[in-house]
Design a protein around this nucleic acid. Structure first.
Lengths: 108, 108
DNA sequence: GCTGTTGTACGATGAGTGTCGTACAGTACC
DNA sequence: GGTACTGTACGACACTCATCGTACAACAGC
């Protein structure tokens, strides 16, 4: 095995990313916060590096939702799991969507 | 009473429209379809004039979700209820969000 | 009056969701 | 070896949600 406790990390291909799933994924405040922080960073960040008011289990759940919606990409690196925003894929499929939502989120 | 069967139609003021609520409202395929059709029309349309694959009860539920999220405005006109997109309010609060989502939706 | 149309109200129901705690599996470091 | 640390897995729970059927209220037209 290459991974610590999971079987496989699957991501939807770019063409199968659905708008409804993306909007639903970003409609949760915790997930929007995670993605906004990820966008501000630019690169990869571990799951535990986000300041969210939930437990580890809930965090795992949210990252799974984001990954299956096609919003983030996860990759195993030793014991840590590195998360990156799939900005290229999302911009190609839904141009301008991410930027508009981030701007709206920062405008609160 | 001025209305047929409901007590009052309440809408959130512009400043209280929340991004999460809007994203959640638009993440449902039925509601996204309703709002897209409404955007294509431009003016007001009755609830029954939308071609959605759900019953009247479910339709009422979806219109309520859209109204309470601040996406649409509802107004009673005789026996019919007229729906209009709150484009000005949404554009003022979240600039470009509606246009981007509609473009993404049409790109399927 | 009566009938049809429009839409809501009120359950009910099955599925999904966000949350948590506990237990466990890798990895890193001493 | 042992001890942290990182994150998942599983079960549980309360809550929300999308859907429906039935009943009902207001209006329009005959």
């Amino acid at each position: 095995m290459t991974s610590p406790a999971t079987e496989e990390i699957t991501h939807p291909p770019r063409d199968e990313i659905e708008l409804g799933a993306v909007l639903h994924a970003l409609s949760d405040p915790v997930r929007l916060r995670i993605v906004s922080a990820l966008a501000g960073t630019g690169g990869e960040r571990t799951c535990g590096s986000f300041d969210v008011p939930v437990t580890k289990s809930t965090c795992t759940h949210h990252f799974k939702v984001l990954r299956e919606a096609g919003v983030i990409h996860q990759r195993q690196e030793g014991a840590a799991r590195l998360n990156a925003l799939r900005r290229d894929d999302l911009d190609a499929r839904f141009p301008g969507l991410l930027a508009t939502i981030f701007e709206a989120a920062s405008a609160s």
